[in-house]
Design a protein around this nucleic acid. Sequence first.
DNA 1: GGAGTTCGCATACC
DNA 2: ACAGGTATGCGAACTCC
Length: 819
Amino acid sequence: MKFEFIPIDFDYFDFEGKNYIRLIGRTEKGEKICVIDNYEPNFWIILKKEYEKNVEKVCEKIKKTVSEKASRLSGVLRTEICNKKFLGKEVVAIQVFVTNHKDAHDIASKIGDMKEIEFRREYDIPILTKYIKEKKVEPLRWYTVDGNAISSNEFSKMSNTDLKICVYASKIEKSKKEGGFKPKILAYDIEVDDTEIGKGNILMVSLYGDNFRKCLTWKKCENSQDYVDCFENQAKMIEGFVKYVKEYDPDVLTGYFSDGFDLPYLKSIAKKNRLKLNLGIDDSEPIFSRGRISSGKIFGIVHIDLYRFIDAVFSQYLQSETLSLNEVAGELFGEKKENFDFEKLNSMKDSDWRDFFSYCLQDSRITYMLAEKIWPDIFEFTRIIKEPIFDVTRDRMSSHVENFIIHNLDRFNEIAEKRPVYDEIEQRKSLGKYEGAFVLQPIPGFYENLAVFDFTSMHASIIVSFNLSKSTLVDKKEKGSFQTPEFEFDGEKKFFYFSKEKGFTPKLLEEVVGLRKKYKKEYNENKNPLLKARSNAYKLLANASYGYLGFFGARYYSREAAASTLAFVRDFASRTIEKIRNEGYGIIFSDTDSIGFELKNKTKNQVLELLKKINSELPGIMELDLEDFYRRGLFVSKRTTKEGAKKKYALLDENNKLKIRGFETVRRDWCKLARDLQNEILKKILEDGDEKRAFELLKVAISKLKNRKINIRDLMIRTQLRREISQYLSEGPHVAAAKKMKEKEIPVSQGMLIEYFIGESKSKGKRIGDRVFLPNEKVNYDVDYYLNNQIIPAVENIFEVFGINIKNIIEGEEQRKLF
DNA sequence: GGAGTTCGCATACC
DNA sequence: ACAGGTATGCGAACTCC
C-alpha cells in the first residue's frame, strides 16, 4: 500500500536484537496510524593521518568486535569507508554498523585502543536523532510511504497498538504535499486535597478538547453541572479518565506543569489502587525519565507540559513576572483562572462543589486555549530543529542549537563532535569567566530629544562576519584570516585568529540570520501566526548561538571563540560611540549593543544620515538599526555613590509611551506600593516635566501609609525561594517567611514565590526577618519599614536629579506635624 | 554593642 | 547542568574596637 503520511511521534523498539523505529502519525485522510521503519545503527571511526592507507586492515580488525550485554549479543555487522570531514578537516573515516544502537558505545570503547584510530564519534547521539538525521524522516512533514500492513506474525506483537493499521515501510519519500495539520488536542488538570504527590487524593480530573468537556469526580454526585461525571470511588474515576482519553484519541495530551504534578500524581494513585494507567495506544503506562524534572512520556500520544516549553523557550516573548498559568494566559489571551478558596475544602457545601468543578474545568479550558495559541511555535520549532515534539517542548535553548547543528551536518559532509564527558565538563567549569560586554556609565540627569541605535543580532552577526567557531580557530595569522582586537584572556593580552575558509557553524548561523530576515519580512506583509512563529524561532536560534559557544555542555564549545565574539562586541560598541560623539552628539548611555544619545542641535534626518554612514563602514552582515527617537529620558545615580547607575533608566517615546528599565517599578521583589508610586512619579516627570507635582504624589502616599490607609495587599513582598531552605547560608526575609510557612504546614517548595509583609512585632529582633508575616496574619504593618526601606529608596534618587532632597523635606514636614 | 564592611542572594539588562 | 557576562541593591553576617 502507498499513502501520504505525517509523522507526529517517534519511538523505537527491539525485535530479535535489532532496532526498529515506530512512527505515529496521520494519513492524508486524517487516520491515525503507525509506521514501522528499519534502521541500521552505526557510529564513526576517524583514522590517524599516518594510518589512512591501512584503512582496509582496520576494517577487518573492527569486524571481529562483539559486545555481550544484558544477555544481548551484539556485534559489528559491516563497515563502510568514506571520505568525510571532521571539524572542517578532510578525514578518512569508517562507518561501523552494529546490531543494536544500545551497544554502539560499548563496541566503540572496545576498539578505542587501536593505534590506528584517532577518534570515535556519534555513538553518543540518541537513536531517534540518528534515525531522523540519517533517513531524513522528519517530524511534522509529509511523506509518501510504501509498505505492507502487518497483522498476524511475531513481529506484529512488537508493534501491537489499538490502531487500526500498522504498516511496515519499504520506502519513505519526501512528499510534495505541503503545509501542516491541525492536531487534536486534549487538555487536562487535576485537583487534590494534598499537594505532595501521592500523599492525598485526587478529588477531580477535568478534560477539555474540541467540543468536549468533562469533569470527573467521586466526591459529589448530586446537583452538579452536566459536564460532571460521577464515579463510585477514586479508582473508578481514574479508569474513567483513561477511557475518555482513549475515546477522544488526541494527538496531543497537554497540561500545565503536568510533568511535575498531574501525570505523576495520577500514576501514583493508580499504583496505590493496583490499577494500570494505560494511556498509551499499546496500553502501556507513561514512562518517567529521570532528569532535573522528570518527563512523562506516553506511547502514541504526545504529552506536552506547556509550562516546560514556556519556561525554556517561549518565556522570552512574555512580560509575565511569573510563569503561572493564570498570568501567562492572562497576558496571551486575557483569560483568567476562576477563584476558589481552598480553605473551604474541609467544609464544602453543594454550591462550593459546583464552584470547584467549574474552577477545575476552567483550568483545563485555558490550558487548551494556551496550547492552541502556542501550537504554531511548537510546530515551527519542531520542523526547524527536527527533533520529536516531546523533546522540542522540553529541551533548553542549548540543546535546540545543538540539535539544529546535528541535523544539518550532512550538508557539510561533517561527522558530529562528541558530547563532553564528566571530566571535560568539570574542567570547562573550572575555567574562569572571560571579559564581557561594555556598559557605559551615564551621567545622572534629565535629558531631552534622544535617539537610540542598536546592532541587530550583534553577537550572531559578529560570529558570521568574522567566522568565529571551534573549527575555524587557527594558531597563527594566515593569509586572509580574521584577527580579533587585542584583549585580555586568562590574564594575558592577546589576539585570536580565525581561518578565512568559512566554517560550517558560522555558515549555518548565516543561514539562520538570513531566514529570520526573510520570514520577518514575509510576516510583515502577511500577518499569520505561523510566519510569526517561524521568524521568532530563527531569531531565538540566532540569539542563543553565542551563549552556546560558551556553554560548558556544548559539543561545539569554544571558550576562545566566545571570548573573541565579546572582544568584537566591545570594539564595535566603543568605536561606534566615538563616531557618534565626533559628529557632535551627546552620548548618554550604552549597554552591549545599544547606544543612546542626545540630538542637541541636530535633526532627525542628520541622525538617519549618520546611521547610513556608519552602516556603510560595517563589515560582513553587521547592521546598526535605529531603535527609536525619544522625547525625554531620566537617568539616576546609584544609591551608594554619586555615580550614574547603569542599566537603570526611563525613556518617553514620541507616542508618550514609557520605557522603563532596571527601576524598582520593574522588579517583582518590591512591594506594589513602592513600584506603583515610582511608576507614577516617573510618568509625571517624563510626561509633564514637572517634578514639583510629582512630589505631591509622594506626599499623598506617605500620609496614606502613616494613617494606615494602605491595603495590605499592596505591601506584600514576593521573592523566589531559589533553593532548599536548608541550603541557605544567609537567612534573608523570604527564607524566614518560608520557614514560617513550613511551621504552619503550608506547602513550601524550591522555586516557589514566597509572599510576605513586614509587620510590627513585640519581640522586635534585630533582623527584618524577625518581623516577617504571612499574608493572612492579622498584624499591623510596619510604617517605618515601608517608608524607609521601600518608598524612600524607590524615589529618592529620582528627586535628587532635580536637586530635591526628600529626606530633609519629610523630616521637616514631620516636625511641623504635616503628616 | 555599635559602626563599618563584606558577602549572599535575587533580580534585572542586553 | 541544561546559553553568556555586567550590574544594582537589599539584608545578614562578619570584623573591629
